[in-house]
């Protein structure tokens, strides 16, 4: 009972902030997990996998709670629809990070040394794109005029990740030492990771429309 009384009532502003923290955290865990995987440090990789799963659960719980509060008693419906869409889309990014890391665990792809650096660079670009999107989303709630400053950075990092993904796929398929099946598996991995940046760019475009709608 004491715990209930002392339990701090979390405002919706704080819940949304926490949720965006979870999305950001999942990106960082993904990056660490891929690094460990590429170094073949499977013990720490497994730990990151565990952590990202927990983060995803926590993110889901926060999303449900935010949606519940939004539906029950806050926000003018017009804004409510936009906020709801934003939260759900951000949650899908979190899911993608977790899904991508689990794919490494399930398929256990052999990433040969020539591709490692490009793989790392791809992950970095994707992470930058998502981080810029998270900053834009925070600004959407707190300072609408600052959103566009972050949105164009999402587009920049998405195009960078596209460049790296193309380069990487090209070198994978030009490597005659690998079997076709291996090449195709690596290509799928590259595409899977690159798609996270594509998705971030789509969300940035939506966010831009929300901002235009609410412009004074």
């Amino acid at each position: 009972m004491g715990e209930n009384i002392l339990k701090r009532k979390i405002g919706i502003e704080k819940q949304i902030d926490d949720f965006l923290d979870k999305v950001s955290e999942s990106g960082l865990l993904f990056k660490c997990g891929v690094d460990y995987y590429l170094k073949d440090n499977m013990e720490d990789f497994a730990h990151k996998l565990e952590q990202i799963t927990e983060t995803e659960h926590a993110g889901d719980a926060l999303r449900r709670s935010v949606e519940d509060v939004l539906y029950r008693r806050t926000l003018i419906p017009d804004s409510r629809g936009d906020v709801m869409e934003l939260i759900e889309n951000m949650d899908s990014l979190l899911d993608r990070f977790k899904g991508a890391l689990w794919r490494f665990e399930i398929e256990y792809p052999e990433i040969c040394a020539p591709f490692v650096e490009d793989f790392k660079a791809l992950v970095d670009c994707v992470l930058e794109a998502v981080e810029a999107l998270i900053r834009a989303s925070r600004a959407f709630f707190k300072d609408m005029s600052a959103v566009t400053n972050h949105i164009h950075k999402v587009a920049f990092w998405e195009s960078e990740s596209d460049n790296i993904a193309t380069r990487l796929q090209r070198s994978i398929f030009r490597n005659k030492e690998l079997r076709l099946s291996h090449r195709m598996q690596l290509r799928d991995f590259v595409r899977h990771v690159d798609k996270i940046a594509d998705r971030a760019e789509d969300l940035a475009d939506r966010l831009n429309i929300f901002v235009i709608k609410r412009s004074l």
Partner: peptide, 11 residues
């Protein structure tokens, strides 16, 4: 614009 209210506070 000046006080930069949080969307929920503004709401």
């Amino acid at each position: 614009k000046h006080f930069k209210f949080h969307m929920f506070k503004l709401d």
